[in-house]
Design a binder for these strands. Structure first.
Length: 429
RNA sequence: UCCUCAGUAGCUCAAUUGGCAGAGCAUCCGGCUGUUAACCGGAGGGUUGUAGGUUCGAGUCCUACCUGAGGAGCCA
């Protein structure tokens, strides 16, 4: 019988056996302090020379960082042990003595850690981030599953661009050009006409040569799409959704947030309603801060940071100029120069996490926009069909998981939010 | 794609004006019964990113290239 480290507190006074890896070891005379991790936690195992067979003590002496081992001993509470519990070791079996491990408990540079990402994942901080990421993904699924949404998967291999603007990864599809999906939205629109409320959740690809703390070539996106919903409806959905996700992480991953030293007080404020400002109102604010960005163009990175830091909750910016937005966005009936769209900017300077809109439901207007953007009408035949057969207003948005993880964990860079980041100039490991 | 900065031991970094290539950690050996990134003593470990140039002499100055980091634009 083996015990997981997370359960040792249920076995005080009992002899248990754990299996894991040596995280760190310190020696003191006839004592060996083994810090052992097993994926569920870490515990200090104390080996006293007089308590074990001489050959066992000698074997323990040979262990290096990340050596695999099976440790048997009695659990006791001890204030001197990290975590409050430790094991008095009676026996220890070595699985493998690890070779010289590259990642030591000392400082390392970013390039070195990325080169060793497959090993870096074992570090306490990276382990905590992986667990928080998982909780965020679980919360995302639970939110939609519990609110009447049907998961409808959208394809990763696609024949055409969803938004003509961004760069796509092109691949050979039996002699035809295909692209890795940059959004499931168009397919979501088809799905929501079947199930009413749908969402897709999966990897998304962008071949943009972006080299910033907020960009990856491959990232996870969750995209809900709701039939009959207007812009206001999805702004409400977005704030309920983001609040739910944040509160779930606060409840379920307290220990991990503590381990990465995340100050949770800003997160505790994340509940509806969120501030909502129009693009024009946002510009009034930016101009008082002295922005150089001309009205009518999209916000620059500095502008986004200003807006993001101006509120202690995520801020929703809506009704951007039509010209800088995608072809499928419904024009504002009160101002045809604006689109019924919205972006949500996370606080603390993290910036855009959500982008969404009400979609054009009139077939003639949509056709006009496709032509205006010089997109191939043939490729959008099926998309136009959605407006021919019982069209209804509908809206949706997309949320980038990595940016949310980055914000909730208060990270410097999205590369730590995903196990194996695909970045400009780095696809190893 | 553009701008800025950086490449010295396995890792993190020193090296004065251009003048003997150095430390901590890691590794190996020895010591210690309460360590928390332990400590103490000892040892091994180098084509200073690559190619060329200036100089009596280059880690240091110049040129090109390579690699990486930070940022911009674009976006989630």
């Amino acid at each position: 019988m083996y015990t997981y480290i997370q359960n040792v507190h249920e076995h005080i006074g009992e002899e248990i056996t754990i299996r894991g890896w040596l995280y760190n070891r310190t020696d003191k005379g006839k004592l060996r302090f083994l810090l052992v991790r097993d994926g569920t936690g870490t515990i200090q195992a104390v080996v006293f020379k007089g308590n074990v067979d001489p050959e066992v003590f000698e074997a323990v002496d040979q262990t290096t960082q990340e050596s695999s081992l099976t440790v048997t001993g009695t659990v006791k509470e001890d204030s001197r042990a990290p975590g409050g519990y430790e094991m008095d070791v009676s026996h220890c079996e070595i699985g493998q003595i690890a070779g010289e491990y590259p990642i030591t408990p000392k400082d390392h540079g970013t390039a070195f850690l990325m080169e060793n990402r497959h090993l870096w994942l074992r570090s306490s901080r990276q382990h905590a981030i992986l667990r928080i990421r998982h909780e965020i993904i679980r919360a995302v699924r639970d939110f939609y599953d519990n609110n009447g949404f049907t998961l409808v998967d959208t394809p990763i291999l696609t024949p055409a661009a969803c938004e003509g603007t961004t760069t796509l990864f092109e691949i050979d599809y039996f002699g035809e050009k295909a692209y890795l999906s940059q959004s499931g939205q168009l397919y979501n629109e088809a799905a929501c006409m079947s199930v009413g409320k749908t969402y897709c959740f999966g990897p998304t690809f962008r071949a943009e040569k972006s080299k910033t703390r907020r960009h990856l070539m491959e990232f996870s996106k969750v995209e809900p799409e709701v039939a009959w919903a207007n812009l206001d409806d999805i702004m409400k959905l977005a704030e309920d959704f983001v609040s739910y996700v944040v509160q779930r992480v606060l409840e379920e991953r307290k220990e991990e947030l503590e381990r990465i030293e995340r100050d949770t007080t800003p997160l505790e404020k994340i509940e509806p309603p969120f501030p909502r400002i129009s693009y024009s109102e946002a510009f009034v604010l930016l101009e008082t801060e002295g922005t150089d960005t001309p009205r009518g163009s999209d916000f620059g990175a500095a502008d986004e940071t200003i807006l993001s830091c101006s509120f202690d909750k995520p801020v929703i910016v809506h009704r951007y100029p039509r010209d800088i937005k995608a072809f499928y966005m419904q024009p504002d009936p009160e101002d045809s120069g604006s689109a019924l769209c919205m972006d949500m900017l996370a606080p603390e300077g993290y910036g855009e996490i959500i982008g969404g809109s009400q979609r054009i439901h009139d077939v003639d207007l949509l056709l006009e926009r496709i032509r205006e953007h010089k997109l191939p009408v043939d490729a959008f035949k099926w998309y136009l069909d959605l407006r021919k057969y019982g069209t209804v207003p509908h809206s949706g948005f997309g949320m980038g998981i990595e940016r949310v993880v980055s914000w909730i964990c208060s990270l410097d860079h999205v590369r730590e939010t995903i196990p194996f980041p695909r970045m400009l100039y780095r696809m190893y490991p």
